Computed example of a mutant assay.
Amino acid sequence: MNGFSFANGLTVKNRIVMSPMTTMTSFYNGMVTSDEIAYYAKRAGGPGMIISGVANVSDSGKGFEGELSVASDEMIPGLAKIASALHQNGTRAILQIFHAGRKSNSEILRGNKPVSASAIAASYPAGSETPRALTGSEIEQIIADFGQATRRAVQAGFDGVELHGANTYLLQQFFSLNSNQRTDQWGGNRDQRMKFALAVINSVKNAVSSVSRPFVIGYRLSPEEIETPGIRLEDSLYFAEKIRDLVDYIHISMGSYRRTSLNDKRDVEPILQKFAKITSGHTPLIGVGSVELPADADNVLALGTDFVALGRELLREPQWVQKIAADDEDSIRTRISPSDMAELAIPSVMQVYLSESFKSVMHFTTDTNTKQDYRNQVAPMEGFEKKL
């Protein structure tokens, strides 16, 4: 598969990307563990880029236990070990960064109330804690925190950062009318609700303005919300149009690359194709969703994307890219035995997570349920399932 060169000069050896996936394996304070490094090293070398599991930029942004952190300089040495592990055979290392916002709780935050754009609880999971609305100064601090997190990613040796504006986390919460009903400069109509994301992008761009080597800034977004009120497809397409010349790539988050609109069943055009029309000639687009075999990757590219992201498939088959290159497609594993997870360097905590919360999407050899393709429904990884 041909390589790719970003406009800023960063070269990528092929169009395969490893999706960001939660490992839940960091120490209690967000520092890197040896299990995480081994997990990434097992999958490095093949994909052109690997995007790390998400790292919080602020202590108030922690969303779950075992989450990576980039909230202080103390994290840089450990993050540098991840970047080094990912750089095998020319693979590019991208650090995904975020703030969980209302997708957290007081227990995870050690007694502190979760925060968001407005004091409105999430619809999913049921019983979510009502957050505290951020003050203006707190919003400005979080914007600055994204910039500082990016500085640390540069120092740790990463080739870029991805802003996690998907899966109902804080960046998405500010854009959504479901979670942002503010009446100040950070809320209001659709353009007003975009201001937080635009400010974060600007903060991150400023942080890398003097970096002497190519460093990319990506943005991941969810195309729709299922709540009412909530983000609809036309809103996300509008959002993509507004940021397409501000970021180095856009990455869509959804469970199937064949997905069409969840809210408008009359619309049968694939969502990826819609976004490709917006991003073409402006910024690269990463497509994703239940890609398992080379034919799936070809289908994603045929929809107009520039990269193909694999997530669960690279858990099952770390040598996916190498096997394709060796014309050994028949040996690719599209199912996984629970007995093989340790051999595949999947950390023990992550094994539990996959076996319980993600059981329906992992294609375990011991699972007798019918495989779901998520063409017409959200998948567990899209922010509508409770994390352990």
Rank of each mutant, 00 (worst) to 15 (best):
F307E: 06
M362N: 12
P229G: 07
K359G: 11
W320F: 13
R220L: 08
K359N: 11
S256R: 02
E343R: 15
A345E: 15
G281W: 06
E269Y: 06
V321W: 00
F358R: 05
I250K: 02
A326N: 12
S256L: 01
L285R: 00
I243S: 03
H282Y: 13
E227S: 15
E356N: 15
N263A: 09
Y219A: 02
P318H: 08
I243P: 00
T305K: 02
T279L: 11
E225M: 02
L301S: 04
A345D: 13
S360I: 11
S339R: 14
I286G: 05
T279I: 06
Y353G: 06
L310Q: 10
K274W: 07
K323H: 11
I252S: 04
S357A: 12
P229F: 08
F239R: 08
V268T: 15
A302Y: 08
G289C: 06
F275I: 14
V247H: 04
T228E: 13
G287M: 10
N299Q: 15
S357Y: 11
G218A: 09
D298Q: 13
I226Q: 07
L233K: 12
F239C: 09
P270H: 10
S222W: 00
L237Y: 13
D306K: 01
Q322S: 13
L303M: 13
H363I: 00
P284S: 14
Y257L: 04
F307N: 03
L310A: 11
A342Y: 05
A325T: 11
G304M: 05
F364V: 00
I226W: 13
I278K: 02
S261G: 03
P284T: 09
V300K: 04
S337Q: 13
K274D: 01
S280D: 03
I324W: 02
D298G: 07
G281D: 03
E224D: 05
A345Y: 12
V352E: 10
D327A: 14
G304N: 10
V291K: 09
N299P: 00
L237R: 04
S261L: 09
Q273E: 15
R220D: 03
E356W: 08
V268E: 14
V349Y: 12
Q273M: 14
T228S: 06
V361G: 01
E292L: 10
